[in-house]
Design a protein around this nucleic acid. Sequence first.
DNA 1: CCAGATATGACGATATTCGTACTATTCAAT
DNA 2: ATTGAATAGTACGAATATCGTCATATCTGG
Lengths: 143, 143
Amino acid sequence: MTKPTDDQLAKLGAAFDGFARRYKLADPDGIERSLNEIDKYTLRFVADHPGCGPTDLARYLGVPTTTASSATDRLARRGLLQRDRVEGDRRAVALRLSAEGEALVADLVAAYRALCRMMLERLSPTERDSFIGMITKIVYHDD
Amino acid sequence: MTKPTDDQLAKLGAAFDGFARRYKLADPDGIERSLNEIDKYTLRFVADHPGCGPTDLARYLGVPTTTASSATDRLARRGLLQRDRVEGDRRAVALRLSAEGEALVADLVAAYRALCRMMLERLSPTERDSFIGMITKIVYHDD
DNA sequence: CCAGATATGACGATATTCGTACTATTCAAT
DNA sequence: ATTGAATAGTACGAATATCGTCATATCTGG
C-alpha cells in the first residue's frame, strides 16, 4: 500500500487542530462547562449501562477505581445518579441515572448530535455517506 | 440543502466516540501522559509563535491570563521554555522554547503525525485526498 | 471453613484552574 | 509634562480533581 504523502499528513493534522480548537471554543458556557470530562463520560456510560458499578466504569474509562468512585460520588451528590444496592452481591452498587441525570444526558446527546449535524451539513448529500464510511473505516479497522 | 438523516448522525456520532476512546487509551505512558492538555497546547503555540507573551497564549487557548501564566511558569520550571525580557516594552516577557522544549515538541509532533499516518493508511490512496478535502471543508467552512 | 479475589469507599498528597488583587509600564489626551 | 486609563504579568489562595494507599465488607473455590 502506498504511503500517505507529507502534504496529506500536514493537511490532515492542521484540520484536526482546527477542529479541536473550534469545538472547544464553541461552547463557552453551555452544559459542557458545568461538568468535567470524566463526569460527562460517566453519565453517558451509565445511561448506556444501567445497573453497572463503579468498577465497570473505571475499566471503561481507563482510570483507577478510586477516580471512578470519586466521580460517581460527585454525581450522586449533585443528584444526577443514584446508587442502589444489588441483591445477590451485597458488595456491589448499581448505578442508575436519576430523572435529572436522564434529562442532562439528553441535553448532552442533543448538543453532540447538533454538532454532528452541523458538520454533515457542510458536505453535499453525496459526500456525507462517503465521509461516514471513511471515518468508520478508520475507527473500526483493526490491525 | 437536504438534511442529514438520523442514521447518518448516529453513525458519525458513534465513530467519533470510538475515535476519541481509542485515541485516549492508545498511549498509556507515552509523552502524552507526562504533560497535561494545556501544557501541550502551550508548547505547540510557543513553538509556532516564538516571542509571544502569556496573554497571547491565554487569548489563543480561551483561558484566563492567570491560567496561562501558571502554565508558562510550570513549563519554565521544568526547563521546557524560557522567559526573556523584551526591549521596547518592559512589562512584557517573550516566551521561547528551550532546546529541551524543542525536542519535546518535535516528539509530540512526530507522535501526532504518526497518528495521522495510521489513519490515512486505513484508506485507499484514492480515498485519502477525498477524506482530507471533506474534513477541511468541515473545519474551515464559515457560516 | 478459609485463603484469596473482588467491590467499594475513606483519606490524604499533590496538582490544576481561576478569581481577586497588586505591581510595573505604556499610552493618550490634555 | 502630567495624569488617568489601559495593559502585561504575577502572587496568592480557594475550590476542585486525580489517584495511591489502606481499610472493610463480601463472595467463591476447594
